[in-house]
Design a binder for these strands. Structure first.
Lengths: 263, 263
DNA sequence: GCAAATGATTGATGCAAATCAAGAGTTGTA
DNA sequence: TACAACTCTTGATTTGCATCAATCATTTGC
């Protein structure tokens, strides 16, 4: 049954919807969503100056959010992985402040913006979880600012690799813990870190020669995790958070939703 | 009466609390807050690796959120003005991901973190407004990433000046619209944009010589707003948002809180 | 009212990363 | 099969910004 799709959703345990476990909550989710979008690699989801549209949950694939300064300067402001929220914009902004495109073949769960607000209001724990995901994106953005502003090219690339592998562990308990998909071209890595593709190439070669990490088209292999993390200036605890942290547990959630409905 | 302080709060119309207008809502705010903190310029509010503490509303003054890479590299990830929320961190992170310090003499309204969560849950519109402020910070962070990553030093300084003046208009309808306080040293401007103080100095001189803006210790004067905005690559609408946008109006809010309590 | 910081300003020099250029693989496709 | 379009790679050159260094100009403290 089409209307029961949320019950069988593969990524529900890893995204906002995880706090919605009871049958009326699942029904509310199913009523709120307006469909699924499947896109190919390099398809654009929405564009910077277009009117603000729907919200999305990333079901599969990678996305890049980016801003264009002029025709030949592009800055990726966020990388989105399965479970992440796509379309964060403060209410009152009439046009998107960034563009979004798929980096790989991907799929999205579509939630009209006002229905998401309705869910947050009716189910406070859904609201709390939504907030948690936005706060998490903010934390990543702050880290990115630090990389671009004050870390050397080598350090910030190392940091990005460690970050991505940590975030991926969220979704795929990797066999070795040292290898992961990385569907980014060198130019795209440059667009994330404010560098040119040429320079990214040289820094990747150095990481390889130094025996820290080996980036091949489509994948990363972490060779010496401790030294790579040290180069990245990584705080152990923060990466642990990215790889394991989840919003408040379903148990807490359902309790709070109950409390609220009862009060 | 001490317990009635929120009713007379000067910045309430400009911060999260603006949606709490009815007397039970104000009472809830007053019960939630645990006090006011007054700090001097350069006082630290909390430090990067310390356990996550309270949430704050900025009542007056400016604050800087920053990360330290090593002893001699510092990156300011956000500038906070009156009305802004201080202490955004996703639940589950046990230590702060950044430090916070006052740039001027300033004051903060203190809200224990779990009580803020309680307010969001009990008053869904407070929750929506809280989310709005976090989303707004995220938007600013994305813009900062773009400045540092893909704009020249001159462009990103121009952008910062336009941004700050726009955000200040929120609070102080300025007489001329062209002049504003800017309690940042040149080194601090550099720490915001990933530049050295020396280079900031040269770029500021150029802005002055080109007749775009005049930054003096403690203040900015925008001389040619259109040309400065063009140099900044500013989208008109976005700056308009920063200078005027507010979260959902009290009218909408009180309606929704009612609806929810009734349902 | 003098000393000691602190911040602003300017010059000289060095380097990290951009830009320009060109060849080698790869992938898609006509 | 071959052509077009990417992507990766490497070398040569340029440049924007950092670094080092010194001199002023303001504040702050005693």
């Amino acid at each position: 049954m089409k209307s029961q799709i949320c019950r069988f959703c593969q990524v529900r345990q890893r995204n906002i919807c995880r706090v919605m476990t009871e049958s009326n909550e699942l029904a509310a989710l199913e009523a709120a969503r307006s469909g699924t979008i499947v896109v190919r690699a390099h398809d654009m989801v929405f564009q910077q100056c277009a009117p603000v549209g729907d919200l999305y949950n990333v079901l599969s694939g990678w996305f890049a959010l980016y801003k264009t300064v002029d025709d030949n300067r592009r800055q990726i402001v966020a990388l989105l992985l399965p479970g992440d929220v796509l379309g964060i914009e403060p209410d009152g902004l009439s046009t998107n402040s960034y563009s979004a495109e798929a980096l790989t073949a991907a799929s999205l769960c579509v939630i009209p913006r006002e229905r998401a607000a309705d869910l947050r209001t009716r189910f406070p724990n859904y609201g709390e979880t939504f907030l948690w995901f936005v706060e998490r994106e903010y934390t990543l953005a702050a880290e990115r600012i630090t990389s671009i502003g004050r870390r050397s090219a080598l350090e910030s690339i190392a940091h990005l690799l460690v970050e991505v592998v940590a975030r991926l562990k969220h979704h795929y308990p990797l066999v070795s813990g040292e290898s992961a998909p990385l569907p980014l071209t060198q130019t795209e890595i440059g667009d994330v870190l404010g560098l040119t593709g040429v320079h990214v190439n040289r820094m990747l070669r150095q990481l390889r020669e130094d025996g820290l990490a080996d980036v091949q088209p489509g994948s990363v292999r972490i060779i010496d995790a401790p030294r790579l993390a040290e180069l990245a200036g990584a705080r152990e605890e923060v990466f642990a958070f990215w790889s394991t942290a989840l919003p408040p547990s379903p148990a807490e959630v359902s309790k709070a939703n109950h409390t609220h409905r009862a009060g």
